[in-house]
């Protein structure tokens, strides 16, 4: 009985370890995907001319931002 308990704990620890390792792997994949997607989005945004819109807005006083509507 005692051996079964110890074996179960060992198995559970291994699964927890494997679960944590899988979580690490998932996090790494997510990070890589987000970095690649982020770079791609920036390129798409530049291509769409969004930088021009942002610059045009930013170099004039944003009346909405300062509460003048």
């Amino acid at each position: 009985m005692r051996n079964c308990g110890a074996a179960a704990r060992g198995l559970s620890a291994r699964f927890t370890e494997q679960g944590t390792l899988m979580k690490l792997k998932t996090k790494r994949i997510l990070r890589l995907c987000c970095i690649l997607a982020g770079a791609a989005c920036i390129c798409v945004g530049i291509r769409r001319g969004e930088c021009t819109v942002i610059l045009q807005k930013a170099v004039k006083i944003c009346l909405e931002c300062i509460g003048l509507g």
Binding site: C34, G38, A39, A40, C41, I42, V44, G45, E50
Partner: peptide, 12 residues
């Protein structure tokens, strides 16, 4: 997409 991409890079 430009802003989204910037936030994704910094956030990640």
């Amino acid at each position: 997409f430009y802003v989204l991409g910037t936030l994704m890079l910094f956030g990640t």
